[in-house]
Simulated scan of single mutants.
Amino acid sequence: MARSYWDINLEEMIGVGVHFGHGTRKWIPRMAPYISGKRKGIHITNLTRTACSLSETCDLVFDAASRGKHFLIVGTKDKAVDSVASATIRARCHYVNKKWLGDNRNQTIFSTIRNSEELRGGAIEQLEKARARLRKLEIEAENYKNESIHFEQQRARNKVRQRVFQQALQGALETLNSYLNNELHLRTISANIGMLGTMKI
């Protein structure tokens, strides 16, 4: 879609009263560059600057529409209601052309938003707590794993010690048994010698 020249006609703008601004009592000092004068208590808008800003706005809207962006057109003044509706329907845009008076609906919407924020905050808090619990479980699992490894290592060492002790004990018993056998053998020999000595030939 090629950008086209925007047909902005100052006479038409004057004809529909675009140059009429707000009352002089309601003006804002920073709007002075956009005001060309005043008439009967009403500021007269500088249409030259208005036309330039309108052209820039048309360029901005054109670029946004080219990228598939959506628009919401708002105009709630009595004279703008029908124009807003017909223009936005032709452009297939969303629009608001009726004033929304402050009532219980506003409070309901604000309450819903506030509740949503509170729910979101509560969900985030619960998520943080869940993460903390998960981290605690991970630490406990790591500690249990380390304790299990330490226990297995200790049990292996105990088995080695037990095996060495059994081997040592078995060796000691064998040595003692051998000593006792030798002692018994010597005593038997001594007894036999003594018996032979007392025998008469």
Rank of each mutant, 00 (worst) to 15 (best):
N146A: 03
T188M: 08
I189C: 04
S111K: 04
G171V: 01
L134C: 14
G171E: 05
H185E: 08
V160L: 02
I149M: 08
P29Y: 11
D63H: 07
Q162S: 09
S178I: 01
L173S: 14
A91W: 12
N46F: 06
E125F: 02
E12T: 03
N158C: 06
K77H: 14
G122E: 13
A172C: 08
V164G: 10
G121S: 15
S66P: 07
G37T: 13
N115P: 14
Q162W: 12
E152G: 02
A80V: 05
L176M: 06
G21A: 13
A65N: 00
G122V: 01
I42M: 14
T188R: 01
G75P: 03
A85P: 02
V16D: 02
R155Q: 11
E138L: 07
Y34V: 03
A91E: 04
Y95Q: 14
N97T: 00
V61D: 09
T48S: 12
N158S: 05
L72C: 05
L10N: 00
L186S: 07
T48C: 12
E142K: 14
E152M: 01
F20V: 04
T76L: 02
S4H: 12
M199H: 05
L47V: 09
R133Y: 01
D63L: 08
H43P: 01
Q154A: 15
Q153A: 01
G23E: 12
H94L: 11
K79H: 12
K26V: 00
E152K: 00
A132W: 02
Q162D: 15
A51K: 00
S86V: 04
E117D: 03
Q107H: 06
N143F: 08
L184W: 13
M13D: 02
G23V: 09
L176T: 00
L196N: 09
H185L: 14
A2V: 02
I89C: 07
L196T: 11
S111L: 05
L72A: 07
I73H: 03
T24S: 11
G23I: 03
I189M: 04
C93M: 10
H94G: 04
M13K: 00
L127C: 06
S83N: 12
P33Y: 05
T108I: 03
E174P: 00
D7T: 14
S86D: 15
S66C: 08
R114E: 15
H43N: 13
R187E: 15
E117P: 06
R92C: 15
N181E: 12
C93S: 14
Q167I: 01
C52V: 06
E11L: 08
T45K: 07
W27T: 10
Q126D: 02
E138Q: 14
R30I: 02
V18W: 01
N158L: 11
E147M: 03
K159A: 04
V164C: 03
N158A: 12
I28S: 03
R90A: 06
L119A: 14
T24M: 09
I89E: 07
V81A: 01
R114F: 13
M13F: 07
I28E: 03
E125A: 02
M195E: 13
Q126W: 01
S148A: 11
Y5S: 09
H94F: 04
G37W: 06
G23D: 13
S178Q: 04
T175A: 05
R3A: 01
N106T: 06
Q162K: 06
S190P: 10
A32W: 05
N46E: 13
W100G: 07
K136L: 15
T48G: 07
S66I: 09
S86E: 08
N97G: 08
K77N: 02
